Every structure is written in structure tokens, then in C-alpha cells.
Computed example of a mutant assay.
Amino acid sequence: MSVCNSTSESSSSTRGWLVHGLVLAAAVAAAAGAHVALALRRSGRLRSRVVGIIPARFASTRFEGKPLVDILGKPMIQRTWERTKLASTLDHVVVATDDEKIAECCRGFGADVIMTSESCRNGTERCNEALQKLAKKYDIVVNIQGDEPLIEPEIIDGVVKALQGAPDAVFSTAVTSLKPEDALDPNRVKCVVNNHGYAIYFSRGLIPFNKSGKVNPQFPYLLHLGIQSYDSKFLKIYPELPPTPLQLEEDLEQLKVLENGYKMKVIKVDHDAHGVDTPEDVEKIESLMRERNIS
């Protein structure tokens, strides 16, 4: 049976129900989050067993078939998998997909594959379904975006260690400095954090925004990188949480976590984001790889 919910998150009736149910949902989620954190403290152990999952789907609205696009002679999903395998904190790496073409490709270069439902609404739900189908149990699940073929293994290790070091958090992710030319690009998600390194908000718009309505060249804006890790207990709860107004409006799954009262640890890294969001980004990635002599 599929663990993903196929109901559309964009219907007006759903939005209305969410607005009225938000307070109750947040209270329930906060209680669940406290239970997860308490269980971890009582167990007296580090979240030590870690699996990396690369969700990949063929039917992307912005770039259909993106995981299979050729990047200097290799499919992009293979390049992401090879980089991910270099991370020292991962005990296992799998690709989670709903498409047989992607699965066949991944098996061809040696990756373990978990088939998941087409009804998964985002990468987090796909990771949850894959986690439940794995034979072994894991404490942390790392969601590695398949469209970052130059992801640094050190960043993967960084988000894992951040979650291991923050027992009150159920989620961790990474940010880097936002380039001025990307400030108004809705495909570049921005993030703001508090003084303790926990996320406050994510947006496709520029945050923070100032009265002038212009980009402030002196402000250290933060760009969200796609990689994120979850406590495995929380990941099982996540699909049962109702979609939230901010999540629906921004189309960002991280906001459902925050709106439901959970804590998210954020680390800042020195990394140029090289995600492939559109077909035009492929040429940019290949040019960069040639400059770095990456074959």
C-alpha cells in the first residue's frame, strides 16, 4: 500500500480547511515533536545510523526527465550518486524513484534502488516511503537532491552532524551566501535563521525585505541548499501532518515543518550552488566541470 497521499494540495477547499485547522494542527504537531525529542534524550544515544536517499522522479514540471539528462557523458543522477557516496557519515545510499527508466539507469551504474509511489507530493514523502521499505533501521535520513551533481560530501556530513548535535531539532539543512544576481530568482530559495542557528522562514522571494524595495548589497542574504536531513521518527510523522497555508503559497515543503512547530537546525557553508533547475542550467554545470577538470 502506498504511504503517499495523492490528494492535491492546491484546492481552495483544502486551503479553507487548513486556515481553520492550523492552530489545532500546530498544537498536535508540537506535542508530537516534544515526544520525539524526549524519546531521543531518554534513549541516551546519538542518532548514529544514517541513510542517504536520493529522490528522483521523471515527471518534473520544470524539466521533465531531469535525472537522466546527460552531464559530460554521465546521467545527472549518477553524478549525484557518486558524489554522495563520498560522504563519511552515510552507512547506506539509495535512489528512490517512481520511474522504471530511472531505476534501470541507476541499477546500471551500481546504485541500490527503491521503487516508490507516483503519488508522493515531494521528496520528503518519497524518502519516507523508501525508508519504510528498507530492510535495516536508521536514525537519520538525508534527502539529497538529485539535481546537484556537484554536491560536496562535506556538506552532507555537516547536516548529519548538525542534527546529531541538536536533540531538540527533527530536521537540519544547509545554507550559503546568496549571490546578488540570484536575489529575485524564485528558483533560488532564501532562508533566515535566528541567533541560535535554527530556521525562522524560507521563501522564494527575497527575505528579509526592506523599505527601499531593492537588494541591499551589504546584507548577508542566505541561499537554501537542497540537502536536508530528518530524524527518522519525525519522517514517519511528516506525511500525516496536514498541508499548511505558507507551504502551499510558497510551494516549499520546509515550511510545513516550521508551521507545525518543529525545530530545524541550519548550518552555513561556503559553497556555490550548482543546481539544475532548467535545461539551460546543464550548459552552466558542464562549463564549470570543464574549468575544474572534472570528468
Rank of each mutant, 00 (worst) to 15 (best):
residue 172 S to T: 03
residue 227 I to E: 03
residue 119 S to K: 03
residue 142 V to T: 11
residue 185 D to Q: 07
residue 205 G to V: 01
residue 266 V to S: 05
residue 174 A to K: 02
residue 124 T to N: 13
residue 115 M to F: 07
residue 223 L to K: 02
residue 89 T to W: 03
residue 143 N to G: 07
residue 231 D to H: 06
residue 256 K to R: 15
residue 127 C to T: 01
residue 118 E to H: 11
residue 163 L to M: 06
residue 214 K to C: 09
residue 139 D to E: 14
residue 193 V to S: 03
residue 169 A to W: 02
residue 218 Q to R: 03
residue 150 L to N: 06
residue 48 S to Y: 00
residue 91 D to C: 12
residue 289 M to K: 02
residue 213 G to W: 02
residue 186 P to D: 08
residue 266 V to L: 06
residue 112 D to C: 06
residue 149 P to D: 10
residue 144 I to H: 11
residue 286 E to Y: 00
residue 201 Y to M: 08
residue 158 G to E: 14
residue 128 N to T: 05
residue 107 R to M: 14
residue 4 C to A: 09
residue 138 Y to G: 10
residue 123 G to F: 01
residue 33 G to R: 04
residue 77 I to F: 10
residue 15 R to K: 07
residue 240 E to Y: 03
residue 154 E to R: 04
residue 98 D to I: 05
residue 271 H to N: 09
residue 23 V to I: 14
residue 196 H to I: 03
residue 292 R to C: 05
residue 273 A to I: 04
residue 93 V to M: 12
residue 75 P to A: 14
residue 182 D to Y: 08
residue 127 C to S: 11
residue 25 A to I: 01
residue 109 F to D: 08
residue 234 F to I: 04
residue 76 M to C: 10
residue 92 H to A: 08
residue 228 Q to D: 12
residue 234 F to M: 04
residue 239 P to E: 06
residue 267 I to V: 15
residue 292 R to G: 02
residue 61 T to Q: 05
residue 122 N to M: 12
residue 116 T to L: 13
residue 94 V to W: 05
residue 66 K to F: 01
residue 42 R to Y: 03
residue 191 C to W: 00
residue 73 G to S: 13
residue 102 I to P: 11
residue 69 V to C: 14
residue 280 E to H: 02
residue 173 T to H: 07
residue 224 H to Y: 05
residue 117 S to N: 02
residue 63 F to N: 09
residue 15 R to Q: 07
residue 286 E to F: 00
residue 81 W to Y: 15
residue 228 Q to L: 13
residue 69 V to F: 06
residue 23 V to Y: 08
residue 42 R to W: 06
residue 236 K to Y: 00
residue 161 K to L: 12
residue 180 P to N: 01
residue 80 T to Y: 08
residue 32 A to D: 15
residue 292 R to K: 11
residue 61 T to D: 11
residue 147 D to S: 12
residue 258 L to V: 11
residue 185 D to V: 12
residue 87 A to T: 07
residue 215 V to K: 00
residue 170 V to W: 10
residue 282 V to A: 14
residue 161 K to R: 05
residue 191 C to D: 07
residue 290 R to Y: 01
residue 92 H to F: 08
residue 162 A to N: 08
residue 291 E to L: 12
residue 225 L to Q: 10
residue 117 S to P: 07
residue 234 F to E: 10
residue 58 F to P: 00
residue 46 L to I: 05
residue 110 G to H: 08
residue 263 K to V: 01
residue 43 S to R: 02
residue 222 L to I: 05
residue 45 R to L: 13
residue 94 V to T: 12
residue 92 H to G: 00
residue 12 S to T: 04
residue 96 A to Q: 10
residue 8 S to K: 05
residue 87 A to H: 06
residue 53 I to V: 12
residue 250 E to T: 02
residue 267 I to D: 09
residue 276 V to M: 14
residue 278 T to M: 14
residue 17 W to I: 07
residue 106 C to L: 11
residue 295 S to N: 10
residue 281 D to H: 12
residue 129 E to C: 02
residue 11 S to E: 15
residue 268 K to H: 08
residue 278 T to A: 10
residue 153 P to G: 03
residue 136 K to R: 15
residue 193 V to D: 02
residue 36 V to Y: 08
residue 228 Q to S: 15
residue 217 P to Y: 03
residue 216 N to S: 13
residue 184 L to H: 00
residue 95 V to K: 03
residue 243 P to R: 13
residue 250 E to Y: 00
residue 117 S to E: 05
residue 99 D to N: 15
residue 70 D to V: 05
residue 102 I to G: 05
residue 45 R to C: 09
residue 189 V to N: 01
